[in-house]
Amino acid sequence: MNIANIGNGWETALTIAGLALVSLVTRCFFLIPEREVPLPEWLKRGLKVAPLAALTAVVVPEIVMTQGHLIQTWHDARLPAVAAATLYYLWRPGVLGPLLAGLAFFLPLRLLLGW
C-alpha cells in the first residue's frame, strides 16, 4: 500500500474526531437521557448474555475461518494452539497460562513451518 497517502490534512483529523464522537454516542446511548428509556423486563434479562455472546462472536471466526471461509486444512497453526490453550485451561484456569501455552504452539508452527 502506498504509505502516507492518508495521514495528512485536516480532513482525516476531522474524520477521526467524528469517530471519537461515535465512540461516545454509542457507548453512552442509553445513558444520555435523564429519564430511563423503558425496556421490557424480559429483554433486560435476556441481554445479560450480550457481552459473552459478543466475545464468542469475535473469537470463534478468528479461530475457524480464513478470509471469510471455514479453514480447509489441518495445517493451520491456530488449531493446535487453541487445543493447547484449551487443555492448559482445563488443567489451570486463567488467562495468561492458556495464552502462553497457545503461543508456544502457534509461533513455531507459523514461523518455522509456515502453517
Binding site: L52, L55, T56, V58, V59, E62, I63, R78, A81, V82, A85, T86, Y89, P93, G94, V95, L96, G97, P98, L99, G102, L103, F106
Partner: peptide
C-alpha cells in the same frame, strides 16, 4: 492471535 487466545481463556 495472542489477543484471540486471551479472549478464549476469558470466555472459558
Amino acid at each position: 492471535f495472542a489477543g484471540t487466545l486471551a479472549v478464549l481463556g476469558l470466555t472459558y
